[in-house]
Protein backbone atom coordinates (compact mmCIF):
# COMPACT_ATOMS: atom_id res chain seq x y z
CA UNK A 1 0.00 0.00 0.00
CA UNK A 2 2.44 2.60 -1.15
CA UNK A 3 1.94 5.61 -3.33
CA UNK A 4 3.50 5.59 -6.76
CA UNK A 5 6.44 7.99 -7.02
CA UNK A 6 4.90 11.41 -6.94
CA UNK A 7 6.62 14.18 -5.09
CA UNK A 8 7.50 17.81 -5.54
CA UNK A 9 11.10 18.33 -6.63
CA UNK A 10 11.46 21.30 -4.29
CA UNK A 11 10.14 21.64 -0.73
CA UNK A 12 6.78 23.36 -0.93
CA UNK A 13 5.65 26.16 1.33
CA UNK A 14 1.87 25.98 1.05
CA UNK A 15 -0.17 29.15 1.58
CA UNK A 16 -3.61 27.61 2.04
CA UNK A 17 -4.47 24.91 4.54
CA UNK A 18 -6.98 24.21 7.26
CA UNK A 19 -7.36 22.49 10.57
CA UNK A 20 -10.61 20.65 11.16
CA UNK A 21 -13.52 19.12 9.29
CA UNK A 22 -16.59 20.42 7.44
CA UNK A 23 -20.33 19.80 7.55
CA UNK A 24 -21.27 18.86 4.03
CA UNK A 25 -19.30 15.70 3.33
CA UNK A 26 -17.24 13.22 5.32
CA UNK A 27 -13.69 14.24 6.17
CA UNK A 28 -10.81 11.83 5.87
CA UNK A 29 -7.43 11.84 7.63
CA UNK A 30 -7.69 15.33 9.05
CA UNK A 31 -5.61 14.98 12.21
CA UNK A 32 -2.40 17.04 12.05
CA UNK A 33 -0.30 13.89 12.27
CA UNK A 34 -2.18 12.40 9.30
CA UNK A 35 -1.70 15.62 7.38
CA UNK A 36 2.02 15.49 8.14
CA UNK A 37 2.21 12.04 6.54
CA UNK A 38 0.76 13.47 3.34
CA UNK A 39 2.99 16.53 3.54
CA UNK A 40 6.05 14.32 3.90
CA UNK A 41 5.01 12.18 0.94
CA UNK A 42 4.42 15.17 -1.33
CA UNK A 43 7.37 17.21 -0.02
CA UNK A 44 5.32 19.97 1.55
CA UNK A 45 7.75 21.48 4.01
CA UNK A 46 5.30 23.82 5.71
CA UNK A 47 1.58 24.51 5.52
CA UNK A 48 -0.17 27.71 6.60
CA UNK A 49 -3.42 26.70 8.29
CA UNK A 50 -6.65 28.36 9.27
CA UNK A 51 -9.21 26.86 11.60
CA UNK A 52 -12.24 25.51 9.78
CA UNK A 53 -14.27 25.85 12.99
CA UNK A 54 -13.33 29.52 12.97
CA UNK A 55 -14.37 29.88 9.34
CA UNK A 56 -17.79 28.44 10.14
CA UNK A 57 -18.84 29.21 13.70
CA UNK A 58 -16.42 30.11 16.46
CA UNK A 59 -13.28 32.08 15.72
CA UNK A 60 -11.85 32.28 19.26
CA UNK A 61 -12.20 28.54 19.87
CA UNK A 62 -10.97 27.71 16.38
CA UNK A 63 -7.93 29.94 16.66
CA UNK A 64 -7.14 28.27 19.98
CA UNK A 65 -7.12 24.91 18.18
CA UNK A 66 -4.57 26.31 15.73
CA UNK A 67 -2.48 27.51 18.68
CA UNK A 68 -2.48 23.99 20.10
CA UNK A 69 -1.37 22.59 16.75
CA UNK A 70 1.40 25.17 16.46
CA UNK A 71 2.57 24.25 19.94
CA UNK A 72 3.03 20.64 18.81
CA UNK A 73 4.18 21.14 15.23
CA UNK A 74 5.41 24.70 14.96
CA UNK A 75 8.16 23.66 12.59
CA UNK A 76 5.66 22.41 9.99
CA UNK A 77 2.61 24.63 10.33
CA UNK A 78 2.10 28.37 10.19
CA UNK A 79 -1.06 29.85 11.67
CA UNK A 80 -3.54 32.27 10.13
CA UNK A 81 -5.63 34.15 12.66
CA UNK A 82 -9.18 33.73 11.39
CA UNK A 83 -11.44 36.72 11.94
CA UNK A 84 -15.22 36.94 12.14
CA UNK A 85 -16.48 40.45 11.33
CA UNK A 86 -19.74 40.14 13.26
CA UNK A 87 -19.04 40.04 17.03
CA UNK A 88 -18.20 43.61 17.94
CA UNK A 89 -14.46 44.01 18.57
CA UNK A 90 -13.72 40.30 18.34
CA UNK A 91 -11.63 40.41 15.17
CA UNK A 92 -8.99 42.80 16.50
CA UNK A 93 -9.03 41.07 19.88
CA UNK A 94 -8.17 37.81 18.12
CA UNK A 95 -5.43 39.46 16.07
CA UNK A 96 -3.86 40.86 19.25
CA UNK A 97 -4.39 37.64 21.19
CA UNK A 98 -2.39 35.62 18.68
CA UNK A 99 0.04 38.32 17.55
CA UNK A 100 3.03 36.14 18.41
CA UNK A 101 2.19 33.47 15.82
CA UNK A 102 3.99 35.18 12.98
CA UNK A 103 5.32 38.56 11.96
CA UNK A 104 4.09 39.77 9.59
CA UNK A 105 0.68 38.54 10.76
CA UNK A 106 -1.20 35.92 8.77
CA UNK A 107 -4.91 36.69 8.67
CA UNK A 108 -7.78 34.67 7.22
CA UNK A 109 -11.17 36.00 6.09
CA UNK A 110 -14.02 33.80 4.87
CA UNK A 111 -16.65 36.32 3.76
CA UNK A 112 -18.74 33.58 2.16
CA UNK A 113 -19.21 31.48 5.29
CA UNK A 114 -19.43 34.54 7.56
CA UNK A 115 -21.86 36.12 5.10
CA UNK A 116 -20.33 39.56 5.12
CA UNK A 117 -18.83 41.46 2.18
CA UNK A 118 -15.10 42.13 2.29
CA UNK A 119 -15.80 45.84 2.66
CA UNK A 120 -18.18 45.33 5.62
CA UNK A 121 -17.68 47.59 8.61
CA UNK A 122 -16.66 44.63 10.74
CA UNK A 123 -13.73 43.90 8.44
CA UNK A 124 -12.50 47.52 8.33
CA UNK A 125 -10.35 47.36 11.48
CA UNK A 126 -8.84 44.13 10.17
CA UNK A 127 -7.82 45.80 6.92
CA UNK A 128 -6.40 48.71 8.90
CA UNK A 129 -4.44 46.30 11.09
CA UNK A 130 -3.11 44.44 8.05
CA UNK A 131 -2.22 47.70 6.32
CA UNK A 132 -0.28 48.92 9.33
CA UNK A 133 1.52 45.63 9.97
CA UNK A 134 2.21 44.31 6.50
CA UNK A 135 -0.32 41.58 7.10
CA UNK A 136 -0.76 38.67 4.71
CA UNK A 137 -4.52 38.31 4.31
CA UNK A 138 -5.90 35.15 2.77
CA UNK A 139 -9.44 35.86 1.55
CA UNK A 140 -11.75 33.16 0.26
CA UNK A 141 -12.97 34.25 -3.17
CA UNK A 142 -15.58 32.79 -5.49
CA UNK A 143 -16.47 33.95 -8.98
CA UNK A 144 -18.95 36.84 -8.79
CA UNK A 145 -20.03 36.18 -5.20
CA UNK A 146 -21.66 39.20 -3.60
CA UNK A 147 -19.46 38.92 -0.53
CA UNK A 148 -16.14 37.81 -1.96
CA UNK A 149 -16.03 37.93 -5.75
CA UNK A 150 -12.44 38.75 -6.70
CA UNK A 151 -13.34 42.14 -8.15
CA UNK A 152 -14.50 43.31 -4.73
CA UNK A 153 -10.89 43.10 -3.57
CA UNK A 154 -9.56 45.68 -6.04
CA UNK A 155 -10.72 48.80 -4.13
CA UNK A 156 -9.68 47.13 -0.88
CA UNK A 157 -6.18 46.46 -2.18
CA UNK A 158 -5.87 50.06 -3.31
CA UNK A 159 -7.18 51.44 -0.02
CA UNK A 160 -4.81 49.32 2.11
CA UNK A 161 -1.55 49.09 0.14
CA UNK A 162 0.39 47.77 3.14
CA UNK A 163 -1.71 44.62 3.23
CA UNK A 164 -0.66 41.69 1.05
CA UNK A 165 -3.85 40.06 -0.14
CA UNK A 166 -4.02 36.45 -1.31
CA UNK A 167 -7.08 35.83 -3.47
CA UNK A 168 -7.97 32.41 -2.10
CA UNK A 169 -8.76 29.94 -4.90
CA UNK A 170 -8.37 32.80 -7.42
CA UNK A 171 -12.14 32.87 -7.77
CA UNK A 172 -12.33 29.09 -8.47
CA UNK A 173 -14.19 29.12 -11.80
CA UNK A 174 -12.70 30.10 -15.15
CA UNK A 175 -14.56 33.42 -14.90
CA UNK A 176 -13.39 33.78 -11.31
CA UNK A 177 -9.79 33.36 -12.43
CA UNK A 178 -10.32 35.99 -15.12
CA UNK A 179 -11.60 38.38 -12.46
CA UNK A 180 -8.72 37.54 -10.13
CA UNK A 181 -6.26 38.31 -12.91
CA UNK A 182 -7.91 41.70 -13.45
CA UNK A 183 -7.31 42.47 -9.79
CA UNK A 184 -3.75 41.17 -9.79
CA UNK A 185 -2.84 43.20 -12.87
CA UNK A 186 -4.07 46.41 -11.26
CA UNK A 187 -3.08 45.94 -7.62
CA UNK A 188 0.53 44.91 -6.99
CA UNK A 189 -0.23 43.85 -3.42
CA UNK A 190 -2.49 41.00 -4.53
CA UNK A 191 -1.58 37.37 -5.21
CA UNK A 192 -3.27 34.39 -6.83
CA UNK A 193 -3.75 31.11 -4.93
CA UNK A 194 -3.94 27.86 -6.92
CA UNK A 195 -6.06 25.87 -4.50
CA UNK A 196 -9.52 24.88 -5.68
CA UNK A 197 -11.68 22.09 -6.95
CA UNK A 198 -11.63 23.03 -10.64
CA UNK A 199 -8.51 22.10 -12.61
CA UNK A 200 -8.97 24.39 -15.61
CA UNK A 201 -6.76 23.35 -18.48
CA UNK A 202 -4.19 26.01 -19.27
CA UNK A 203 -5.23 28.47 -16.57
CA UNK A 204 -1.90 28.40 -14.75
CA UNK A 205 0.03 29.21 -17.91
CA UNK A 206 -2.44 32.00 -18.58
CA UNK A 207 -2.00 33.42 -15.08
CA UNK A 208 1.77 33.45 -15.46
CA UNK A 209 1.47 35.21 -18.80
CA UNK A 210 -0.95 37.78 -17.43
CA UNK A 211 0.46 38.60 -13.99
CA UNK A 212 3.87 36.91 -13.79
CA UNK A 213 4.99 33.83 -11.90
CA UNK A 214 6.04 36.01 -8.94
CA UNK A 215 2.41 36.66 -8.05
CA UNK A 216 1.18 33.07 -7.93
CA UNK A 217 1.21 30.93 -4.80
CA UNK A 218 0.83 27.20 -4.33
CA UNK A 219 -2.17 26.42 -2.15
CA UNK A 220 -3.61 23.02 -1.42
CA UNK A 221 -6.63 23.66 0.84
CA UNK A 222 -5.57 20.54 2.76
CA UNK A 223 -7.34 18.76 4.45
CA UNK A 224 -10.39 20.01 2.62
CA UNK A 225 -9.05 19.33 -0.86
CA UNK A 226 -6.37 16.97 -2.16
CA UNK A 227 -2.91 18.54 -2.15
CA UNK A 228 -1.61 16.30 -4.91
CA UNK A 229 -4.10 17.84 -7.36
CA UNK A 230 -2.66 21.37 -7.53
CA UNK A 231 0.83 19.90 -7.36
CA UNK A 232 0.05 17.88 -10.46
CA UNK A 233 -1.21 21.02 -12.18
CA UNK A 234 2.04 22.82 -11.43
CA UNK A 235 4.28 19.94 -12.42
CA UNK A 236 2.44 19.41 -15.70
CA UNK A 237 2.25 23.09 -16.64
CA UNK A 238 4.11 24.34 -19.70
CA UNK A 239 6.30 26.69 -17.67
CA UNK A 240 10.02 27.08 -16.96
CA UNK A 241 11.26 25.24 -13.89
CA UNK A 242 12.28 28.55 -12.31
CA UNK A 243 8.67 29.72 -12.49
CA UNK A 244 7.44 26.50 -10.91
CA UNK A 245 9.94 26.85 -8.08
CA UNK A 246 8.72 30.36 -7.38
CA UNK A 247 5.12 29.15 -7.30
CA UNK A 248 5.79 26.14 -5.10
CA UNK A 249 8.06 27.88 -2.63
CA UNK A 250 9.80 31.12 -3.40
CA UNK A 251 6.87 33.48 -3.58
CA UNK A 252 5.29 32.60 -0.26
CA UNK A 253 8.71 32.58 1.42
CA UNK A 254 9.22 36.11 0.11
CA UNK A 255 5.87 37.22 1.53
CA UNK A 256 6.73 35.65 4.86
CA UNK A 257 9.97 37.62 4.92
CA UNK A 258 12.20 34.59 4.53
CA UNK A 259 14.89 33.58 2.10
CA UNK A 260 13.55 30.85 -0.18
CA UNK A 261 16.55 28.54 0.04
Amino acid sequence: MTPAPFRAPVPIVDCHGHLGVHPDFPAYKTEPEEMLEVMDALNIERLAITSTLACYSDAPRGNAEVAACLARHGDRFLGYVTVNPHPRGEAVRELERWADWHRPPLIKMHPDLHQAPVEAAGYRPVWEYADANGGIVLVHTWDSDGNCGPLRLLPIARAYPGARIILGHSGVTWRGYEQAMVVARQAPNTYLDLSGSQAHRGILERCVAEVGAERILFGSDMPYLEAAAPLGRVLAAQLPEAAKTLILRGNFCRLLGEAAA
Binding site: T2, P3, L42, Q198, R201, E226, A229, L231, G232, A237
Partner: peptide, 17 residues
Protein backbone atom coordinates in the same frame (compact mmCIF):
# COMPACT_ATOMS: atom_id res chain seq x y z
CA UNK B 1 -10.86 17.06 -20.88
CA UNK B 2 -10.83 19.48 -22.59
CA UNK B 3 -12.12 21.75 -19.82
CA UNK B 4 -9.89 20.37 -17.07
CA UNK B 5 -6.33 19.17 -17.24
CA UNK B 6 -5.84 15.47 -16.47
CA UNK B 7 -2.95 16.47 -14.21
CA UNK B 8 -5.06 16.94 -11.08
CA UNK B 9 -6.91 13.62 -11.22
CA UNK B 10 -3.75 11.77 -12.26
CA UNK B 11 -1.68 13.24 -9.45
CA UNK B 12 -4.42 12.30 -7.02
CA UNK B 13 -4.43 8.73 -8.33
CA UNK B 14 -0.65 8.49 -8.24
CA UNK B 15 -0.28 9.82 -4.72
CA UNK B 16 -3.05 7.76 -3.12
CA UNK B 17 -1.92 4.84 -1.01
Amino acid sequence: LPLFTPAAALATLLSAR
